[in-house]
Computed example of a mutant assay.
Amino acid sequence: MFAIAAANGGQYPALFAFGDSILDTGNNNNLATITKCNFPPYGRDFVGGTPTGRFCDGKVPSDLIAGSLGIKETLPAYLDLNLRNEDIPTGVSFASGGTGNDILTAQLQGVLSLPAQLKNFQEYIGRLKALVGEERANNIISNSLYLLSSGNNDIAITYANSPLRKVIPFPQYASQLVSWASDFLKQLYGAGARNVWVLSTLPLGCLPGGRTAAGGPLRFCADFVNGQAQLFNSQLSSAVTSLQSTLSGSNLQFIDVYDALLNIINNPLSSGFANVASGCCGTGLFEIGATCNLAVGSCPYPASFVFWDAGHPTQRAYQLIVSSILHQNTTRLSK
């Protein structure tokens, strides 16, 4: 990953993250929601063993990408009460665990919708201009890298459980999700963003919670749930390509996280993993949600697990995923 940082050559002055728990670094901590993780054993492998609100034992992709591109080692949450002024020019995360493209997804969990995250970004721009001046702020906004991860919770939670959405055929719902994502990307572009990486969903049927909910008594990967994710991802990829061709000066890229994680799940021994079906701090056998089951314990060997809890990979799995997608997309570091 250090080669990627060298290739960046300081091209991206900052990194900004939007979307869900894949990129959230603690924005949910002070929200009135149960979708939060600012308590042990979360963060046990983070700097100082601190539970920061990252849905992981350690760093999440927003941190790892920032570090790999030589921007900074961790990406702070914009709503972190301890956010320092010196951290602002190099980027923050606006992502909120549990959110999605569908506003109902955020409402069901009491977290920040994408429009709410965009509003925080606009507030951030004003704060940045006050700190560094309008000219430098505009340069940072237009030349930085933006990440978006959304769709996971819309499919796995809202569509799977909400009667308001279940009446809609999934292909139609997927198209609506992509339309909402496209609208958000246009608004982000309107706010000045030009370089955006749009992440696919995870293979949702292979998450521990997905296996428990839909994988049968043997907890196989739920193929129909993975099929829903694949359909959404295919439509999202096409939409990103279309937007790239229509938004002047933009550099929008679709990033395939689905296959990167599925390859690890299907070939765990080659990556040194011993368990692909259960979360390290949450067995996946009983809990459907994403939070750790504290009764399970603190999990002494997270590096041997692909998943940390019922819905999120471990730091080590994320490291491999980020390494894979960055090396597959090194050419995208040149505009």
Rank of each mutant, 00 (worst) to 15 (best):
N233W: 01
Y146V: 07
Q328M: 13
F254S: 08
V322T: 09
Q253R: 14
W197D: 02
W180E: 12
L199A: 07
V167G: 04
P13F: 12
G133N: 06
F224A: 14
V198C: 00
I125K: 10
H312L: 08
K129N: 11
S150T: 10
N266Y: 00
T331R: 13
L112D: 00
G9P: 02
A32E: 15
G126I: 07
L83T: 09
T201F: 06
P41H: 05
A295T: 08
K59S: 14
G70R: 04
H312G: 10
Y258A: 07
S237L: 11
Q187W: 01
T25E: 03
L285M: 14
K186Q: 15
F46Q: 08
D45G: 07
S144Y: 04
D63V: 11
S113I: 06
D256F: 07
L199P: 00
G190T: 04
L202A: 14
P302H: 08
G272Y: 03
G289A: 10
T331K: 14
K72H: 14
Y318D: 13
T158I: 06
F273T: 01
C206P: 05
A14W: 04
A77Y: 05
L145A: 04
F232D: 00
A193D: 13
L81D: 03
G43I: 05
G53L: 08
L112N: 07
N329F: 08
G282K: 00
S162L: 01
V257W: 02
G249P: 05
N233G: 10
H327E: 14
Q187Y: 01
C281A: 12
F184M: 09
F16L: 09
K186G: 06
L164S: 12
N152P: 07
G249F: 07
G110R: 08
S304E: 13
D57Q: 05
T241R: 00
F286L: 15
T74Q: 00
N251R: 13
S142H: 13
S245Y: 00
S324A: 15
S324P: 08
L247I: 03
Q117N: 07
T158M: 08
F39Y: 12
R127F: 12
T50H: 12
A7L: 15
N263R: 13
L164A: 15
L199H: 07
L177A: 01
A290P: 01
S144D: 11
N120V: 03
D259H: 13
L204E: 02
V92N: 02
S304H: 13
A303E: 10
N195F: 02
L112K: 12
A130P: 04
F16S: 10
E287H: 11
C37H: 04
T314V: 03
Q235F: 09
I168K: 02
L262I: 11
V306W: 00
C281M: 05
I65N: 00
P208M: 03
T33W: 03
T74L: 07
D256A: 10
F121K: 08
G98N: 05
L269A: 15
L247H: 01
